[in-house]
């Protein structure tokens, strides 16, 4: 098989790249990594608040993608979603191992590299735009719904832990999660033009 140059690879869709990764092409993996490592690291750092642990989580996630691409099923979602789910699950595992607690998304500029304006690529500009959009949708939720969603997703807390911490019945916490996610769906759908 003729192996494409890296520049050619960057024009391929993720699913096409994954087929090459499956054949053991490290350059295809490199493109996948460059495409999704930033958002994966941002999520891991948001969850654990420590650069070294966030890097460890991201490395584990991408290495698992390299080692066992058979586990990636294109019919069940995008590569990006798959990577982010692996990162999320591994971050929760890390919480439980190390009792790291919820990340606060407070940046220590000395240890992480944010995206300086002069160096932003097109993708990075779009990431900024997405961040604003999703944050705006989260900010639009009633505080009690946003709180349970963030504690669960970014904090890695179970609904019973959240209920105990907030002094609420478990059913109330589940109900707030459902309402909050439903409203987020509507807000994001409207913002992206999917909904009228």
């Amino acid at each position: 098989m003729i192996r494409p140059f890296s520049a050619d690879l960057r024009g391929l869709a993720d699913e096409e790249l994954m087929a090459l990764v499956y054949e053991g092409q490290a350059r295809a993996f490199e493109v996948i990594f460059d495409r999704h490592a930033g958002v994966a690291f941002s999520l891991a750092y948001r969850m654990c608040g420590r650069r070294s642990l966030a890097e460890e989580i991201v490395q584990e996630a991408f290495m698992s993608l390299w080692r066992s691409t058979a586990r990636y099923d294109p019919s069940r979602g995008s590569v990006r979603s798959w990577v982010l789910r692996v990162v999320h699950n591994r971050a929760i595992d890390a919480f439980r191992r190390e009792v790291a607690g919820a990340g606060q998304d407070v940046l220590d500029e000395s240890i992480v590299e944010t995206l300086p304006a002069r160096e932003r690529t097109e993708d990075e500009v779009e990431r900024r735009s997405d961040a604003r959009l999703v944050r705006g949708a989260l900010d639009g939720l009633p505080r009690d719904q946003r709180q349970v969603i963030e504690l669960a997703y970014f904090g890695g807390f179970s609904h019973t832990e959240i209920a105990s911490a907030l002094g609420l019945p478990a059913g109330t916490v589940k109900g707030r999660m459902r309402l909050g996610l439903s409203k987020l769906w509507l807000a994001l759908g409207e913002a992206t033009g999917v909904l009228p």
Binding site: V39, R46, T114, E124, D130, V134
Partner: peptide, 10 residues
Amino acid sequence: LPASATPLRV
């Protein structure tokens, strides 16, 4: 949801 995290670069 991950997109709401501050965008960082590795």
